[in-house]
Simulated scan of single mutants.
Amino acid sequence: MRALTTIPLTPDSLAVVDVPDPVPGAGELLVDALALGVCGTDREIARGDYGWAPAGQERLVIGHESFGRVREAPAGSGFATGDLVVGVVRRPDPEPCGACGHGEFDMCRNGGYTERGIKQLDGYASEQWTVETDYAVKLDDRLEDVGVLMEPTTVVAKAWEQVERIGARAWFEPRRVLVTGAGPIGLLAALLGTQRGLDVHVLDLPTKGAKPQLVHGLDATYHHSDMDAIMARVRPDVVIEATGAPGLVFAAMRGAAPYGITVLTGVSSRGRTVRVDAGELNRDIVLDNDVVVGSVNANLRHYAHAAEALAAADLDWLGRVVSRRVPLEDFADAFTPQDDDVKVALSFG
């Protein structure tokens, strides 16, 4: 079968190659791939920035935003031929830390976890793949065209869980949320905000095109002006920062309403500096009882919440989030961003 692979840490090594057909082991599903989401992590691995091949292999099958249909399932597994499924990305450390040992492998404390398509485990960018039933999640049949959005939705499902758990330290009744960035993570964070009945605001740069239209499609408010001015006007109770842009990160931290919660989901590049009045920032956070929390990856609980959120969403809106579908053999096009991209997906078959 064909698979999209790379030699980690080697730029321009991304290639479709023939690999052996997968053979499911005990307790594993055999899955026919339907689509694979392409994100910034995949592009960074393809550039040679990072990535780890499985032990004894030169090449890594890339891809962590999986989506497929079950071909074979073990008897009594709860899965059946024809089910729509995704595979979880992360696996706990074989010698688990406390968090991994309690099923919170997204919060691994010793770094010994592995990840499909990223770190020491082949990913899902192949025509077929296997996955342990304990790390497979079934999706509603209605999501056949948009299930590729599942993995990024798990990321924001976790972010919202963090908001709600932190808010529960005292009375907390948020009304307004600001999401910075109208990429897939930002838009899906906004979706989950509207599903919670909040007044949702989204900030990004484009003044026209898919991103503003998708925000308006949620009955949310789109902004493209100065971050500080928006923060002062909106005074959000919750900020979900999905860009990693340092200026926006610090503006979010200092501009939330009292008792505000800022969740950082975007990853900043190293070596970028911003002038910050650290004393004022510290004073604001302390005196307002604010919280800033980083959030990455997802565990099985977040996958379940994400599946519920997608099943409850408007399918036409979700379909517009998947802005471009590229055949596997044209993978280079998927890894070359275009101006109006939102979520780009590789298609199989």
Rank of each mutant, 00 (worst) to 15 (best):
E173K: 01
V86Y: 00
L214S: 07
A189P: 03
S126E: 07
P258R: 08
L300M: 15
V155R: 11
L121F: 03
T130G: 02
G98W: 10
D134P: 00
K138A: 13
T180L: 12
S323M: 04
G103V: 09
V291G: 00
P152T: 11
P94H: 14
D219R: 13
A251W: 14
F348W: 08
E173I: 02
H302C: 00
R69A: 01
I62T: 15
A170R: 12
V274R: 15
D21S: 12
V296Q: 11
A232N: 07
T153R: 08
L198D: 04
G103F: 04
M231P: 05
H64V: 10
V202L: 07
R109C: 03
V179R: 12
R142E: 12
V215S: 08
R43E: 12
P24G: 07
A334S: 12
V234P: 05
A55P: 06
Q57Y: 10
P152I: 13
K211D: 03
V89H: 01
L287T: 09
C100Y: 01
S66A: 13
V131W: 01
K138M: 04
S269M: 15
L178M: 13
G217V: 11
I62P: 00
V16I: 15
M227I: 15
M227N: 05
Y303R: 00
L143K: 08
R109G: 01
R59D: 04
R176F: 05
G111N: 02
L346Y: 11
E161F: 00
L315C: 07
M227A: 13
P184K: 09
L4R: 07
A257P: 00
H64S: 09
A278I: 07
